[in-house]
Design a protein around this nucleic acid. Structure first.
Length: 375
DNA sequence: TCGGAAATAT
DNA sequence: TATATTTCCG
């Protein structure tokens, strides 16, 4: 809708405009809960809000419709119905309300159309994801398309969450192969002693090399490259656990078969499983609830959700596998019980930006759920 | 093949 | 120091 108005109904238009914005904001809040399912919708509304805001003081009230007329054609008819279109800045507080946005604002001039297009296009969200090394952790799990992008990103970078270019090491051939596996892992091909210091700069939790190296020399040369369990990989892991009936029932071999990740070894899974069990045990020393069917919350990124659900979502498993499908819960942390969120932010996450595998563990009721330190 | 635990890097 | 991961042992 081109708002080239008569000054006489200025106030009325202004009020309508404001109402639109408020309505859109309300919509946006609702959509955010289902950000994963409705990423484009969310973006659409977000853009609508920011553009509407941006236009209010100028076009809406000054009648400068030509300022955005060119943009409307490219934005599509829906927004055009009610929002003046115009390249805008990174003022969308609903997208990634964080410092990254602010930083971007600082670094981009107001009329930086190219940048705006890049960040706002539904199909070019990658810069947004890339704006933070923590995106794969802090953000809710990306929708499928974004998830793919994220995964492909991970192929190109060498490490969990860091932006270092992928550094193919001579020994990288061992376990890390291609495709899915590389995507799922952080592809951190680090012959530990040699390269890790230059690559693993963001503190993906521990470094750590092999176990007891009987011969010290062994560690350097034959050291297995570290497997960094990316969130996606961990989702698969959890999904496998779900299918197998829980962490204390599943065996590494079974998990590996279910995960279907090339290059992933039983040892790696076993190690991860061991860690998972330890955390579970630590969190609930009295309640031995390893049954995923009763496990209530899992932290993925910064989202808590029933483990069944998020693993299901991640792996697109058949619904029949799960009994909890009715419990769809894609909720940002903000919507979680305060006790949970409070605990959540006490966790080590704050210090480990790219520690991307977190999960809470389980208890029989959310109220008794304890929050694990980043797992 | 598995679970547990030591070893090691960060 | 805590954690993640690898490696060894039984």
């Amino acid at each position: 809708m081109v708002m080239n108005h008569d000054p006489s109904d200025f106030g009325e238009k202004m009020q309508k405009c404001q109402e639109y914005i408020e309505a859109l904001e309300e919509e946006c809040r609702k959509i955010r809960v289902f950000e994963r399912e409705l990423p484009l919708c969310l973006e659409l509304v977000s853009k609508a809000i920011q553009r509407c805001r941006h236009q209010m003081p100028t076009d809406c009230f000054n009648g400068q419709s030509d300022q955005y007329s060119d943009q409307t054609s490219s934005e599509g008819p829906v927004l055009e119905e009610f929002i003046p279109m115009k390249p805008n800045l990174f003022t969308n507080e609903d997208d990634h309300d964080g410092q990254e946005q602010q930083n971007q604002q600082k670094s981009h001039k107001h009329n930086n159309i190219c940048s705006q297009d890049k960040s706002s296009s539904p199909f070019s969200l990658k810069p947004d994801w890339l704006t933070s090394a923590q995106l794969s952790i802090q953000s809710p799990d990306p929708p499928m398309e974004e998830s793919k992008k994220l995964l492909s990103m991970e192929v190109n970078r060498n490490g969990c969450g860091d932006h270092y270019p992928f550094k193919e090491n001579k020994s990288s051939c061992a376990a890390l192969t291609i495709g899915v596996e590389k995507s799922l892992t952080c592809a951190k091909v680090v012959p530990t002693a040699a390269v890790s210091s230059s690559v693993d700069t963001d503190g993906v939790g521990g470094g750590g090399g092999g176990g007891r190296s009987k011969g010290e020399d062994k560690g350097k040369s034959n050291m297995k490259e570290r497997r960094c369990w990316s969130p996606e990989l961990h989702r698969r892991f959890l999904h496998a656990l779900q299918q197998l009936g829980g962490a204390h029932v599943a065996t590494p071999k079974q998990i590996r078969e279910l995960m279907k990740v090339d290059g992933l070894t039983n040892d790696e899974i076993k190690s991860h499983l061991q860690k998972y069990r330890l955390h579970t045990r630590r969190l609930n020393p009295t309640v031995h609830n390893n049954d995923p069917q009763t496990a209530q919350l899992v932290v993925v990124g910064r989202i808590w959700m029933p483990p069944l659900e998020y693993t299901t979502k991640a792996a697109s498993s058949p619904p029949s596998e799960n009994t909890n499908n009715a419990k769809l819960l894609y909720a940002p942390v903000a919507s979680l019980p305060p006790s949970i969120t409070a605990s959540l932010y006490k966790t080590r996450q704050c210090k480990q930006q790219s520690n991307s595998e977190e999960k809470g563990s389980h208890s029989n009721s959310p109220s008794t759920t304890t929050i694990s330190p980043a797992f």
